[in-house]
Design a protein around this nucleic acid. Sequence first.
RNA 1: GCCCAGAUAGCUCAGUUGGCAGAGCACGUCCUUGGUAAGGACGAGGUCGCCGGUUCAAAUCCGGUUCUGGGCUCCA
Length: 639
Amino acid sequence: MSMSPLEELRHSASHILATALLRIFPDAKLDIGPPTDSGFYYDVDLDHKLTNDDLVKLEAEMKKVADENQPFLRKEVSREEAIEIIRSRGQERYKLGRLADIPEGEKISFYQNGEFMDLCAGTHVRYSSKLKAFKLLSIAGAYHRGDEKNKQLQRIYGTAFPTKEELAQHLDRLEQAKARDHRKLGKDLKLFVIDEDVGQGLILWTPNGSIIRQELQSFIGEELRKQGYSQVFTPHIGKLELYKTSGHFPYYKESQFTPVVENETLSRIVREGCSCAEMVARLDAVSSKLRQTVNDRSGREIIPESRVLDADKLLDGFMLKPMNCPHHIKIFASQPHSYRDLPVRLAEFGTVYRWEQSGELNGMTRVRGFTQDDAHLFCTEAQVAGEVLGCLSLVKVVLNTLGMSDYRVRVGLRDPDSNKYTGTAENWDKAEAACREAAKTLGVPFTEEPGEAAFYGPKIDFVVKDVIGREWQLGTVQVDYNLPVRFDLSYTGADNQAHRPVMIHRAPFGSMERFCGVLIEHFGGDFPVWLAPEQVRLVPISDKVLDYGREVLNHLKAAGVRATLDEHSDKMGAKIRRAELEKIPYTLVLGAKEAESKAASVRSRAKGDEGAMPYAVFTERVVTEIRTRALPAKAQPPA
RNA sequence: GCCCAGAUAGCUCAGUUGGCAGAGCACGUCCUUGGUAAGGACGAGGUCGCCGGUUCAAAUCCGGUUCUGGGCUCCA
């Protein structure tokens, strides 16, 4: 096993952490301690609950271990000897299992530094004194082997660098990242709020944030018109049976809001003495007719006999929609279609609701209610490749317009060992091939990842990282041979026969919430002028030029520019400072000189003081910048 | 959902061994009318997340709960 020098250093740091840990807590049971992208961790089973004070103590002890200048010694042993070493050190609880993971025939090695010895493939630095710059960062819970059925261990995170300077830089970067965090900027710039009385994971878009969202929606709307989409609107709820037909319920039941059962039915079954368990079973069940229909169409036993209940026992309710597709499918199915009509492209900013686990919620990037810039394309099989390409180019237009180039593309394929997918193997192969081919045309590197497909088809995802390195899926294009079958969709072909259309699901932003969250961090709050909630701030130097200020304000407003006049009685410097903190792209300073010549002194976010120009000229410039959706100029480095 | 840590004014935060609730910024009024990142004075603003317990007395101690943060698990 080869490691980069940095990984080697961090891996050694985790051994030194374990050494220190066992000195302070001799009864700790160790699991594993690998390096990570930005540091290292060690998982440990310990009755004592580690606190931040313990981190300080551990760090001090690690320093001692490093100063002892212990050599790291490799020792290769037989499996029997390995078991003996682990036993003699009282570490059999996890280490024997880790030993068992090593395939027969592969070398088994331990590394020893000082009194500590750990089962480890290596490699390591030669002496513990190499460890000069490290810091323990946090304590977290982590399930043994990442399985929530296993015991939760305590994970100690830390980081290490070759030099103190690099460590300091890293910690400084973490600090700077915090300043760009969309949750902080969202509060500072008044873009959105989450109110605990409304509910966790439910975004309230404030006026400023709503402007950004509205601009993004108009932008995408323009592109959709160019590409021949039709706009539709559908409600936020739909009957449970709809999702039983689509297969979303009860398959994804645990990540959906509980169905809404209307009052009279609820009172009736309560009077009948229906238990909760029975009610759940009755909600989950299907009629024999639905079962037969779905199974017949799929040509497979998708719904088992055991889910069938007598019609009078069935309960229907309404679901908050977890996806928009069934609604769009019903619009498509409401009319007969000829091959000449295809592709039909139905687009909607559709709001969906998913019951995400509470611990997973995160600002705007992981929420329980969100609006997808969704569309469903119904096309012939021959059109699939071309339509997928069209969707991908749309995603690229979006990302290019916003200057987002730091993303990766993931082609999500089915996991051959799982049975969670619906549809035939043949269709899956075709869909996966189409996605793979389309991805190749993108001109950016992509990875194929088995197990990342949706349950109804493969997909191409655009994944970006947030300021602290967490990955988020934004734009997505998904090919679906399955739902057209489930809903028995058809069109009439040139041969006058009924044919099955193929569906493509796509969302260039993904969701407005997540996209805006990532966008806030991407721009660090310094939005391009077309997105900025306030585009121009007018700063009159004194009350004497307020009337002139109003004249300029009206001119800008008439040109469609979002501008305000700062009428506070503060000094000009204070007004400028306020505008800077609010990250407004342009500030116009207006004094007696400007009033005389119908001018404005322009101060831009990027360049600072640009001097005076006629306000009509400035207005023209801003309007052009807005219309062309120009990206912000890079701020000039301090002279 | 699980582990750990938090929650005090609109924001950022201080608050000692349990003893009258604090600062800066923001906000309001007044003075000031100015030339590119903070002019001054005064004022208003709080059920210390919520519920319960211990106590003569709780922001402070204990239990529960809600929400937030960092992870883990999950993410159609």
